[in-house]
């Protein structure tokens, strides 16, 4: 019999489980290195919250554009992003915020830097030429640019040695510094076979699955699922779950320790459902970091008007 269950995320943020292209895309081949049965592993919450660095970015399309040259009309956009770090220090702080603005052009077209003025300030959009052919592909370029900055920031934070754990938003699509974990909030790909998948519904708060290893984008990594918030009986089986990744370079033993620490610690960072549209997966520090970053992007309407004014000026010159 079909049973209906709740996806706790607010609908305008999409679903917490959303396949990108093909929901039945076959998972990459997995290796199971932990010498354990496929059963929940209980991770104790740490006595004191370790000093974590949560790294995240937000991006925004300030305005969509057309790039026109002779008969070619290419999709383009003016976009902004900001990346930063939220520290779970005492007191917790947000720092190292960087804001970037770009014009992404498709179909190999090019253009000079665009300078827009807001009040007495100037904001510069440097140009990223690409071979994108659809508006979605242009947006992906913006996303990639932001992800590159996130990775660079994670590396810079790792270099400082200040953080006991670095939690980065999304999968780890770069070779990075230890001890970094990628936190995947939205499940877009199925990894486990049907039998192993059943374990997910049985995970209690603070429990994780055993590790599984695979390679994506030629980056080998360990991954595991952990439940960070309780699930109501009406909620879908993977509500309150996150998937975590870490680089394989760290080695199995180091990764097991890291997985235990993180999985035990994350429930204390999970926001209750009423608090965040993407609770509980959108952690407290990450949610607050995003608020700060969005604020740094500036008012969208003001920025958009400034871009328009810049285009008018270029037309007049």
């Amino acid at each position: 019999m079909t049973v209906l269950r709740i996806d706790p995320w607010e609908p305008e943020f999409g679903a917490s489980v959303e396949a990108e292209d093909d929901p039945d895309r076959p998972p990459p081949p997995l290796e199971f290195d932990e010498p354990l049965a496929w059963a929940p592993i209980t991770c104790m919450p740490p006595a004191t919250v370790p000093c974590c660095a949560f790294i995240d970015g937000v991006r925004r399309v300030d305005t969509r554009l057309f790039a026109e040259e002779a008969d070619v009309v290419a999709p383009a956009l003016a976009g902004s992003w900001a990346v930063g770090v939220a520290w779970s220090s005492r007191p917790p702080v947000v720092d190292t915020v960087k804001v970037r603005r770009v014009i992404v052009l498709g179909r190999g077209l090019d253009h000079g830097t665009i300078t827009a003025s807001i009040g007495g300030h100037r904001i510069e959009y440097r140009v990223v030429a690409s071979d994108a052919r659809t508006p979605k592909q242009v947006l992906d370029k913006l996303q990639d640019a932001m992800r590159t900055d996130e990775a660079a920031l994670a590396q810079a934070v790792a270099d400082t040695g200040r953080a006991e754990v670095i939690v980065q938003d999304g999968p780890l699509d770069y070779h990075g510094g230890k001890p970094t974990v990628g936190l995947v909030k939205r499940q877009t790909q199925r990894y486990l076979d049907t039998e192993r998948q059943r374990l997910l519904a049985m995970l209690e708060v603070g429990q994780r699955t055993p590790l599984f290893r695979f390679e994506r984008g030629r980056i080998p990594r360990y991954s595991w699922y952990a439940r960070i918030a309780p699930r109501r009986r009406i909620d879908g089986s993977i509500a309150g779950l996150v998937r975590l990744e870490s680089h394989q370079e760290a080695g199995l033993e180091e990764t097991r320790r890291l997985a235990d620490t993180i999985s035990g610690m994350l429930p204390s960072f999970a926001a209750p459902m009423w608090r965040d549209a993407r609770a509980p997966q959108n952690l407290y520090p990450v949610g607050q970091l995003e608020t700060v970053l969005r604020n740094r992007l500036g008012e969208r309407d003001v920025v958009r008007r400034a871009v328009e004014a810049a285009l008018w000026r270029m037309l007049d010159d």
Binding site: S88, P91, P92, S268, F269, Y284, L289
Partner: peptide
Amino acid sequence: FLAQEGVLPLQ
């Protein structure tokens, strides 16, 4: 309280 526990960064 969350800020005190190191969980929520607030200015």
